[in-house]
Every structure is written in structure tokens, then in C-alpha cells.
């Protein structure tokens, strides 16, 4: 099982990122999340990345892409905390109502696959 992103449903509202942080450490903050929003603002190019256990999923507007260990993220911009240093998605196994990001997203962007 893994978390999946449907990038063209995403509106960049970022609540999934903050919900994920809440799951991991109980607070509201953008830096402890397994999900990370990235954007090229003037191009309106944006999406969500998911740090999975072994791989990295890029929810890019061109389509989804899964990066294997060692692959580079082309064109990645400056970030306060690189996604590769973040804690991996654990699918919120101990949460009563399933992954908190899926609960929080208003647009049905996130789902489980596999």
C-alpha cells in the first residue's frame, strides 16, 4: 500500500502537508510532513511530493512519477528542509479514520494504491 497523488485535482491549498505534520508530531507546522508542496509560482506549476518508505512520489502536473533511490529530482528549487530528509509516510496506520491528509483534502487528490 502507498499514498497516491492525483496532481491535476490539486489546487495547492497545502492542508495535506499541515495535516501530515500533525499526524507525525501533534503540532501545526510545515516542516515535519511526509508531503511537501513545491511550486514555480510565476508559471503556476505546482504539485505535491510524497516521501514513501523506499521511493519518492512526485505528483507533478504532467503526471505522477515515482523516483527510485539515487534518482535526481530535476529542477528542484530551494527548500527549508529537503524532502529526502523527511520522515516517510506511514499511511497513518494507527489513526482511527485513515490517513489524515486524505481526510483533510477538500479535493480528493490523495488516495491509497496497491
Amino acid at each position: 500500500m502507498a499514498l497516491k497523488v492525483d496532481p491535476m485535482k490539486c489546487t495547492g491549498c497545502r492542508i495535506c502537508e499541515f495535516a501530515c505534520n500533525y499526524h507525525h508530531d501533534g503540532s501545526i507546522s510545515p516542516i515535519g510532513s511526509s508531503l511537501m508542496y513545491y511550486y514555480e509560482e510565476k508559471k503556476n506549476y505546482y504539485g505535491m511530493m510524497v516521501k514513501r518508505d523506499k521511493t519518492l512520489m512526485l505528483g507533478r502536473p504532467e503526471g505522477e512519477k515515482v523516483l527510485m533511490p539515487g534518482e535526481q529530482i530535476e529542477g528542484a528549487g530551494a527548500s527549508a528542509k529537503p524532502i529526502l530528509l523527511r520522515i516517510a509516510c506511514d499511511l497513518c496506520k494507527e489513526e482511527d479514520n485513515g490517513p489524515v491528509c486524505m481526510q483533510a483534502c477538500p479535493y480528493g487528490v490523495l488516495s491509497m494504491e496497491g
Partner: peptide
């Protein structure tokens, strides 16, 4: 219209990007 965007935690995307 390219895409509709939303502010933080907003359930309606009323920002519209024009290309």
C-alpha cells in the same frame, strides 16, 4: 484558463491562472 488554485485550506479555488 490554465488552472484554478486555492488559498491555504480553502475548499473553493477562486484564484484562476490565465495563460
Amino acid at each position: 484558463t490554465h488552472r484554478n488554485d486555492a488559498g491555504y485550506n480553502c475548499a473553493y479555488p477562486y484564484y484562476t491562472f490565465l495563460k
